[in-house]
Write a protein that binds this DNA or RNA. Structure first.
Lengths: 344, 344
DNA sequence: GTGAAAGCGCTAACAT
DNA sequence: ATGTTAGCGCTTTCAC
């Protein structure tokens, strides 16, 4: 083991001293500023290595008014979608020397406000946020008055802030048309209830697809689960027990999809022979399932690209009106979709 | 909207000025130090509110040599286990005023070293780490020489550092005995390959259980998948096609479990009639599956409790030899386990 | 090219 | 109880 002792509070002053130069010169070497002789550079670099010196970040932040840190506010990293997004964001910010502060708001409005305030007081250089309470007056006010470069992720908020939006409407529309083309006339959709988030848009693409396929929407086929955590098993089972049961199911990813697959299995129905299935979002297990589950997917790598590009530009000082990028979901057709079953 | 203008660089000096008191008094009010008259306190508090002042964190950190920040190094938050753990850690650190810097190492050794170094240079008050390369010489050296309070999570590293360990050995041992009690004589185990991590221990409990049940281990029933990402579908299918196919399957959670369930379904075998299934780790879908999948679970809330308790104590300045807490997995029996099928 | 010195915003020790 | 001041570690302007 090389140096197991504590690098007790060593500062640039120690480096300068050991190198036999002034504090200013040491700083110039560290910051790769011009006007340093080769000899000085070498002496300082040797001293740095010898001491194992690393600049004190707090002092740098204070002096430079920049923390090289980006604050990230998510409702919950335990949501795989956000976890992957976070990873992508970190991956792209790292090469620029930024680290990320991550805070989960767990959908609590006061907490979201508090987190944003803390981010500001901690001098974040930029913010990447996906607050759960996008319609809350106070959260909205807090977001609108953020004095740092910010990009809103996946939230349609009424604020003049850069944003990256995930758009399912055209995807769902195309999907419904696609299923109609396979002969499906009864396509059900199962959604979770999202408090404080606009739910209307989710059915928009569905209705458009129906209209374009010249089919009539049966409102009973649009199922909103009573709570965000309630099981879809019963809801789907009920749907499948109808005499005019749907021949295709459009369900939200991960949990609801799982419940749905279980409900289908429990009634000994087969996919896609008896019922076709499509997932909103592409959870890891969808591709591996037998048969593989068709999905509507948002490209999270692209989302991370766009979000960091917007943020980095602002942090670089770029001015101008708010920009918004909308990412449309791709349809990944897999084995879970087939022609509608013949009437029996 | 209240104050949409930028709170342009306002400092404690502005507060003092507006309140008509000295800078020192303002500081005393903010820090709730004794020796402040009621009048002064009020004036300062009013000024603070009026200006929307929040102390500059970098200056505080520099002065106090404390960042009120904890660095968290994980291999990957997109692993649901870690995502939940992170949430639990954050939840417990927040009330103490700590925020968390989260960095994913993606299992890269140099990156883990770099992250640790950055954490130190950024003056983290404490560290919570689960490096992927627990056997790497350099990573180990970096961890051993960390000059800040640190708790190692779920990694058995040769370092005099506080740690919270997850222990499956007794759990697996009991589990094998339990299954043997149900008449199972051929219990297979499917594990992923984890590079740089000791794999030996994983089979330890398994062998102990076999021995206690007076059964002989068939080495072909211990399956290590060739890579961490390879599908278990084929491996499990092969296992199930044997004439002496296992009557019980012990598989790692999430992905491998999914592949396993698919493989079982594809061969039209039924759980638990034809084959019993137990998961290492308790992914969200296990409980909702039909039938519900029995699991070996680590209580992540408890893990977060222990880890933060250790860290907070050290950050408070507590001295003493390294402490280690070991959490043993609980067995959650569910419908996926039944008596071994009668010979047919 | 290099050194000296100011000052970022804050806390705490020291005067009063 | 309150005001004044030193100094945390750093970058950068200004002389030389």
């Amino acid at each position: 083991m090389p140096r197991a002792s504590k690098p007790k509070n060593l500062s640039i002053r120690d480096v300068a001293e050991l190198a036999g130069v002034s504090l200013g010169s040491a700083s110039r070497v560290i910051n790769k500023v011009a006007n340093v002789s080769e000899g000085t550079r070498e002496k300082v670099e040797r001293a740095i290595k010898q001491l194992g010196y690393r600049p004190n970040h707090a002092a740098q932040s204070l002096r430079l008014r920049s923390s090289r840190t980006v604050g990230c506010l998510l409702t919950d990293v335990a949501n795989p979608l956000y976890a992957k997004l976070y990873r992508g964001l970190e991956e792209r910010l790292r090469p620029h020397g930024y680290m990320m502060l991550l805070a989960n708001s767990l959908n609590q409005a006061e907490r979201e406000i508090e987190i944003l305030s803390t981010f500001v007081s901690r001098g974040m250089d930029g913010l990447l946020i996906a607050p759960g309470n996008e319609r809350d007056r106070e959260v909205l006010a807090a977001v609108r008055s953020l004095p740092v470069p910010t990009v809103i992720l996946d939230r349609d908020m009424d604020s003049p802030t850069d944003s990256v939006l995930f758009e399912h409407v055209p995807g769902v529309k195309n999907l419904v048309q696609y299923l109609a083309g396979l002969g499906h006339k009864r396509i059900a959709m199962v959604l979770s209830q999202s408090p404080n988030r606009p739910i209307r848009r989710r059915t928009e693409g569905y209705r458009m697809g129906y209209k374009l396929a010249k089919l009539e929407v049966n409102e009973e086929f649009i199922v909103h689960l009573p709570s965000a955590t309630s099981s879809a098993f019963e809801a789907v089972s009920t749907l499948l027990r109808r005499t005019d049961r749907p021949t295709a199911l459009l369900v939200m990813g991960t949990t609801i999809l799982n419940d749905t697959l279980n409900a289908i299995g429990a009634q000994r129905l087969r996919i896609p022979d008896d019922v076709s299935v499509v997932s909103f979002g592409d959870p890891d297990f969808a591709a591996g399932h037998v048969p593989a589950i068709s999905s509507l997917r948002i490209d999270l790598e692209k989302a991370a690209d766009e979000a960091t590009a917007l943020l980095l530009a602002r942090m670089r000082g770029e001015e101008g009106p708010p920009k918004s990028v909308t990412l449309v979901s791709d349809f990944i057709p897999r084995g879970s979709c087939g022609p509608a079953p013949k009437k029996t």
